[in-house]
Design a protein around this nucleic acid. Structure first.
Lengths: 128, 128
DNA sequence: TTTAATAGTAACTACATTAGTTACGTATGA
DNA sequence: TCATACGTAACTAATGTAGTTACTATTAAA
């Protein structure tokens, strides 16, 4: 949804209100304001309050990557989370498996994120 | 948790009951049986019912990749899912953004999965 | 100065997902 | 025949998320 909204802001090229944005996603303006709050916090979106306020991109679509958006809105930092049950200290596997696994998952996620970093919002927008 | 259990089965090198497996993950045997049901369905685990039954690897740890395990237990096929709100047909972005985005996400996920495919259960197990 | 429009946010409801649990049926080796 | 173990249904509890309402704070424009 974040990419949808960001693409729309790029496409429009001007300020838009949460109400207008909500319509194109078929959701509620508050949902949009919450989402854009995270994007604004990450410096991707500019917010203007009050009459004739609204949201706009804080940077050009060429300089915003899918990774920027992903990081701004994904609360879970892990693509594939580890289970969180407590360790059984009698079991060596229980004690070590998380570390061994996360090393590989983190490396794979790094590669995934580098792919997202290569794709700019402008690449998405030009298909609209 | 699936990787934890699979590593344990590789480490033990013999049958184990859901009760024993549940202890090392600090969970309930039924949770293990449900999980191993999915792994058995994918052909990664062998199940034996009745007295002296239990679970064991259906293939060697060298031939089971993290991708095999991932695919067996991940119901969501998408690492990063698209939002599912209905399209707004008046808005060209709403109509096209999902296709444009998923092309890039699918490619990145393919690369992620190839990384998981390179890591074998034996690579995890040797660290125990 | 007043008004209207707009974002920020708290609080609540509804819904879906998941883990854990209990209970019981089914299968099978001893 | 029996004890043991998986398969699975049904239920509870916890969690997370979307949506909604309502209110406050802010700001441009009349």
């Amino acid at each position: 949804m974040a990419v949808h909204i960001m693409t729309l802001l790029a496409y429009l090229g001007e300020k838009a209100t949460s109400e207008v944005l909500a319509e194109t996603v078929n959701t509620n303006p508050v949902v949009i304001r919450r989402l854009l709050g995270e994007l604004a916090h990450a410096g991707l979106v500019r917010t203007e309050r009050g009459k004739s306020g609204g949201f706009s991109l804080a940077r050009t679509a060429k300089t915003i990557s899918l990774l920027d958006i992903y990081r701004a809105v994904m609360s879970d930092t892990e693509l594939v989370p580890l289970h969180e049950n407590p360790e059984n200290h009698k079991c060596p596997v229980s004690c070590k498996v998380r570390g061994a696994l996360s090393a590989h998952l983190d490396r794979a996620q790094g590669i995934y994120e580098r792919e997202l970093q290569k794709v700019m919002l402008a690449d998405i927008e030009k298909n609209m």
